[in-house]
Every structure is written in structure tokens, then in C-alpha cells.
Simulated assay, not measured.
Amino acid sequence: MPSISTYDSALLTANVLDDENASANGALYDSKGRLLVESVRAVDRTDSHIPGDPASVPRPSAVVGHYNHPGYDTYIDEAIFGGHIFAGWGHTITETISSAWASTEVPQEVPLVMVPWGRLWVSALPRIRETMALAGWGDRPLIMTVGTAVFGKVHVPERLVRFDDLLHRGASIPAEMNAVYDLMIGRSTLSDPRPRIPTFLARTRGHRRAHPYEEAIEAALAERGFRVVEGWDLGVREQIALINSSSCLVAFSGSSLHNSVFAERSIPVLEIMDNRASSTSLVERPLQAALCELREQPFTRVQGYDNGQARTVPDVVEEVMGLCVSLA
């Protein structure tokens, strides 16, 4: 069972973003000024360095009597620290909701505090909030802060998914995360089951890693009977319901394919690699494999390039079609 820790008189430092290095230095500290490692996104225990926070040096102790502390922006009597909110969908359905298992451990009236990571668009907030509610947080009060906050009492649940650990260390995802995904599926799927058909999960147009033939491959699969899901145009429940009715899931690398967590167990998942140096990308991106292992789904990578050259549309499509049949 994951753990949840409770601290009195904790200090949340300001979340100052460093866009160039994709990091930030906000974190929770206890009343003696000690870093609470549960509050940071990545923990490298091999050298005691905490990426994203200056953890290698002692932090000045929080001032006793936080009510009169001149350096904080907000005082919160009691809260749950749930981690970080992201504009990116892949981070939302992996990291952001990975503390939602703790929703039943703390009374519903206790607010949830989340820290935005990067710039959030106002238009994205309703979708993020809906996702968090489906994951178990429900209509619990939500406080988002980037400033310094002092807590009379703060509950800090273990985050089941740490993106950096998955990307760079090949960590596995605890089985307890299944309960979060199963809850979201149960709250989204229709009582009248939809027919199961193969599904291609599209990426937004102009993706920074776009394959030269990406849209052509998508169109060719649609002609062969694939349903194309453009998740950014759907409500969260509708998106989950469509994915859950898939017989095979296919997408290019990235957050679109992370939606496989909402497919049924045993459904084949195919990742079309978008990296020219595909031989190294197998090591560099273990996240999708970890998600499929968690959900007990057969997972296969389809190379998008051959010796640095983009594979042709028929070549990729025929391989995809054959794998969807053979892995079913």
C-alpha cells in the first residue's frame, strides 16, 4: 500500500520555473527546514541530488510561528499536497493523477493543493479538473499556487508515477495505479458497450517530432477500418469511452499513446517510433512499455524509420495491420 505522511508547520517554497532546463525549484520543507522528497518530481538517490530543487545543500529553517512569517504568500490551515498540474495530457494522466489513490484517506472537505508546472492555458483547466475528479478527487476544493505557502498541517501522499524515474531509470509503475485507471474507466464507459474496432490515436498537427508521412499513415489506416480519435476535441469521458472500446491501439510515440491505460487488458498496443535514431529511442523512452506492463497489454514498437530514412506509408501500414491481427 502506498504511504501518506502528515507534517505540521510545513513550508512550500515558490515554484520558480527554469524554461531552459525544464526544471523548477519549489518544494515542501518540514518545520525544521528539511526537504520532503515526496514533494519533488524526481528523486535520484544515488548521489543525494534532487533534480528540480537545490536539495544538496541545507535549506534555512522555516521561521517558528508561521502566522507572522513575512515571507509567505498564503496560509492554509490543512491540505493535501497532490503534486503538479501540467498542460500536457500525457503528464496529466500519469503524474498528476498518481496521488489520487489517497482521496479516501483524508476527509473530503480538506482542500487539495496542486502546483502548476510550466504555463497553463485557462482553456485547459476544466479538462484537467475533470480528469482529476474522475481519478478520485471528486469535487474536493482545489487550490493552485505558485507562490510560497505555509500549512498548519499538510498530508503528502506518495506519487505512484514519477515521470523522470520512468523516462531515465526504467522504473515500473506500482500496481495500485490500476485502481485509479479502473475508476476512471468505470465512471466514463456507457452501460451499453460499443463495438470494438481498431483505433488510431492522433497527435496534434505540427507536432515537434512529426513523421514526414504521419498524416498519410493516419489516413491509410482510416481507409483500412481504423477509428481515428483526436482526443483534444473530445470531453474526457468520451475519450476514455472510445479508447476502452478499441480492439487494437496504434499511435506515434508520445502522450496520445499513453491513453492506452484506458483500453481493456490484453488489447494490443503499437507504438510507431518517430525518432530517426530509433535504435537509441528504445532505451530513452521506456514509459509506454511500463504503462502497458501495468495494464497487461501486449506492446510492440513499429519502426518509423529505416537507417535514418522515413519508411513508406504502405510499409508501415502493412506491418501495423499484421501486428493487430497476430497480437489479438
Rank of each mutant, 00 (worst) to 15 (best):
Y7G: 03
Y7W: 15
T13L: 14
T13E: 10
A14W: 01
L17F: 15
A24W: 13
N25Q: 13
A27T: 00
Y29L: 09
R41S: 14
T46H: 13
S56E: 13
G65T: 08
H66I: 10
H66D: 14
Y67N: 12
Y67V: 10
H69C: 12
P70M: 09
Y72G: 12
T74W: 14
D77C: 11
E78M: 06
A79C: 04
A79S: 10
I85R: 01
F86C: 01
I93Q: 01
E95K: 00
T96Y: 12
I97W: 13
S99K: 01
W101L: 09
T104K: 14
T104Y: 14
P107I: 05
Q108H: 15
V115K: 08
R119E: 15
L120V: 01
W121I: 07
W121T: 10
I128W: 10
R129A: 14
E130R: 14
T131Y: 12
M132Y: 00
L134H: 00
G138F: 11
M144R: 07
G147M: 08
V150L: 12
F151Y: 02
G152F: 15
H155A: 03
H155I: 05
V156K: 05
V156Q: 06
P157C: 05
E158K: 08
F163C: 07
H168Q: 10
I173N: 06
I173Y: 01
P174M: 01
A175R: 13
E176D: 15
M177A: 11
D182H: 11
L183N: 13
I185G: 03
R187V: 07
R194I: 06
T199F: 08
T199S: 08
F200R: 02
A202I: 05
A202R: 09
R203S: 06
T204H: 13
A210Q: 10
E214D: 09
E214K: 04
I217K: 11
I217G: 09
L221D: 05
G225K: 07
F226R: 00
R227K: 11
R237H: 07
L242C: 02
N244Q: 09
S247M: 07
S247N: 02
C248F: 02
F252P: 04
G254M: 03
G254I: 02
L257T: 02
H258S: 03
N259C: 09
S260W: 03
V261H: 04
V261N: 04
E264H: 12
I272H: 12
M273K: 01
M273W: 02
S278V: 11
T280Q: 14
T280G: 09
L282F: 13
E284V: 04
Q288Y: 04
L291W: 00
E293N: 11
E296Y: 11
Q297A: 07
Q303A: 14
Y305S: 07
Y305A: 05
Y305L: 06
Q309R: 14
T312V: 07
P314A: 07
P314K: 07
V317Y: 14
G322I: 02
L323D: 06
S326P: 03
